[in-house]
């Protein structure tokens, strides 16, 4: 009797299971995000300083959460590739990178839009924004490294090494950016320290965060399915080449 994870490790089983799961996960994501947006627009009060514009944080903050979660997922997948040699680990890492990068970009983009009314400029070297920007660079590095190596097995292992180096360096980078920031700028406008947030703001944030998380899972499942299909097509093509080659060689033997 195989355990659940062992069955999941089998790409065929994964394809069957994910096909059944995907519509439900996608639907759930849509429902949660819709509810979260309702809370954000109709329940949460406008910010007493910034007015309606502050509502952009309901997209900005959850995007930043998912951006970090996405990188953590890639690092866990990389670990799975090296330690457990899980056949789906690299599929997961590869599929997660562009999605994570997209959420990171969304966080930066919304942060910049928010910055114009809040700070009077589209970009401020605020510690949080800077950390997210560097996270974006790490995502770009993963994608660029993979795209510049033709051998897929090699590409998977090298990007996994880079992802693990990244996850080790990320807290250090975050720490150093925070340090540099306190040195040069006294405090940022974006202080959202836990207890001071009112529940009417915190609830929609958490709901949309959960919605984005489920959305990420749905997109990740879909991207993994695409990647598995692409690999199958490639394997079939290689088999075709091998068969043709053996037919040419055979008479000569």
């Amino acid at each position: 009797m195989q355990t659940f994870t062992q069955r999941l490790a089998n790409p065929t089983q994964f394809m069957r299971l994910s096909a059944r799961l995907l519509p439900w996960v996608a639907g759930l994501a849509a429902a949660i995000i819709a509810y979260g947006l309702y809370l954000a627009f109709f329940v949460a009060p406008p910010d007493y300083l910034q007015g309606e514009i502050a509502r952009i944080m309901f997209v900005h903050v959850p995007s930043a959460w998912i951006a970090m979660a996405g990188y953590a997922l890639i690092a866990v997948s990389a670990f799975g590739l090296f330690v457990f040699r899980h056949p789906l680990a690299d599929v997961s890492a590869k599929a997660a990178a562009p999605i994570g990068a997209a959420f990171t970009f969304l966080a930066l983009f919304t942060g910049s839009l928010w910055g114009k009314p809040a700070w009077g400029t589209y970009w401020v070297w605020d510690a949080r924004l800077t950390s997210v920007l560097i996270l974006f660079f790490l995502y770009l590095g993963l994608i660029a490294l993979r795209s510049s190596i033709d051998d897929e097995t090699l590409a998977s292992k090298l990007t996994a090494i880079l992802a693990l180096v990244g996850i080790v360096m990320l807290p250090i980078i975050k720490f150093s950016v925070d340090w540099g920031n306190t040195l040069h700028q006294p405090s940022s406008v974006l202080k959202l320290s836990g207890p001071t947030i009112h529940s009417s703001i915190l609830t929609p944030l958490l709901v949309i965060g959960a919605g984005f998380l489920v959305l990420f899972v749905a997109m990740h499942l879909k991207a993994m399915r695409n990647e598995i299909l692409r690999r199958r097509v490639k394997a079939l093509q290689l088999a075709e080449v091998a068969r043709a080659a053996s037919q040419v060689v055979a008479p000569a033997e």
Partner: peptide, 9 residues
């Protein structure tokens, strides 16, 4: 691209 972000600290 890979290394410069690691030099930030």
């Amino acid at each position: 691209l890979l290394v410069l972000p690691l030099y930030v600290p």
